Measured scan of single mutants.
Amino acid sequence: TYTYKLTDEEASRRAEDEWRNRGYDVRVRNNNGTWEVEVR
């Protein structure tokens, strides 16, 4: 499981799409203004 911490929502969406396209399960959540993109 990888977790990315990003401050930019758009960057988190791009990361989400990119990993999803590669067949990974992705979750995005906002934690106090930081976007966490979790990849498994």
Rank of each mutant, 00 (worst) to 15 (best):
G23Y: 01
A15Y: 11
N30Q: 12
E10F: 08
T3C: 13
Y4N: 03
N32H: 09
V39Q: 00
V26N: 01
G33A: 02
T1R: 10
E16Q: 11
E18M: 14
R13M: 08
D25K: 07
N31A: 07
N30H: 12
E10G: 08
T7C: 13
D17L: 15
K5P: 06
G33V: 01
A11Q: 10
R27V: 15
T3V: 14
N21Q: 13
N21T: 10
N32F: 06
N21W: 05
T7A: 15
R13S: 05
E10T: 09
A15M: 15
E9N: 04
K5S: 12
Y4W: 09
S12G: 09
D8Y: 04
R13T: 05
N21H: 10
R29I: 14
N30M: 10
D8I: 04
V39P: 00
N21P: 00
R13E: 04
N32Y: 06
T7H: 13
V37E: 00
E16H: 08
V26E: 01
K5Y: 15
E38V: 13
W19K: 00
T34F: 12
N30G: 05
D17E: 15
D8W: 04
A11D: 09
R20M: 05
T7P: 15
V37S: 00
D25I: 13
R29G: 06
D8N: 11
G33P: 00
G23S: 01
T34Q: 12
V39M: 02
A11G: 06
V28G: 02
D25V: 11
N31E: 10
R13A: 06
V26C: 00
W19T: 01
L6D: 05
Y24K: 02
R22Q: 09
N31R: 09
V37D: 00
E16R: 08
T1I: 13
Y2H: 11
G23D: 02
E9Q: 08
V37K: 00
R20H: 05
T7K: 14
D25G: 04
T3Q: 05
R40D: 07
N31L: 11
Y4C: 05
T7Q: 14
N21K: 15
R27F: 14
R13C: 06
T3H: 07
R29A: 08
K5Q: 13
Y24D: 02
R29C: 06
R29K: 12
D8L: 04
V26S: 00
E18S: 09
R20A: 06
Y2A: 08
T1M: 11
E9P: 06
T1F: 13
R20W: 03
T34N: 08
R22L: 12
R14L: 09
K5I: 15
R29S: 14
T1E: 06
V26A: 04
R40L: 12
R40I: 12
N21E: 11
N30T: 06
E9A: 08
R27H: 14
R22P: 02
R40Q: 10
D25L: 11
W35N: 00
T3N: 06
V37G: 00
V39R: 01
R40Y: 13
E10D: 11
W35T: 02
E18V: 12
V37Y: 01
A15F: 14
E36Q: 05
R22F: 05
Y2D: 05
T3P: 03
E38N: 05
W35A: 01
A15P: 02
D17H: 13
E16S: 11
R27W: 11
Y2S: 06
E38S: 09
G23E: 02
G23V: 00
R29M: 11
V37T: 02
V39C: 09
D25E: 14
T7V: 13
D25F: 09
R27D: 11
D8H: 04
R22N: 06
E9K: 07
E10I: 10
N32E: 10
Y24T: 02
A15K: 11
R27G: 07
E16M: 12
V26R: 00
R27Q: 14
N32A: 09
N21M: 11
E18W: 15
R14D: 06
R27A: 13
W19S: 01
T7F: 14
Y4M: 09
W19A: 04
E16L: 11
E18N: 08
R14V: 10
V28R: 09
R20K: 11
R22Y: 05
N31H: 10
V37P: 00
D17T: 14
K5L: 14
R40A: 08
R14W: 08
R20Q: 05
N30P: 07
R14F: 10
R13V: 07
N32T: 03
T3M: 09
E38W: 06
E36N: 03
E10H: 08
L6Y: 15
T3D: 04
W35M: 02
R13N: 07
W35G: 00
N31S: 08
Y2K: 11
V26Y: 00
T1A: 11
E38L: 10
E16A: 15
V26D: 02
V28E: 02
D17M: 15
E10W: 09
D25N: 10
W19L: 07
N30I: 10
D17A: 15
E36S: 05
T1N: 10
R22V: 04
E9Y: 12
A15L: 15
Y4P: 03
R20S: 06
N31F: 11
Y4F: 15
V26W: 00
E36M: 08
E18L: 14
R40K: 11
G33E: 04
V28L: 05
R27C: 12
E16F: 12
N21V: 08
D17S: 14
T3R: 08
E38K: 04
E16K: 06
G33F: 02
R22G: 05
K5G: 06
W35L: 03
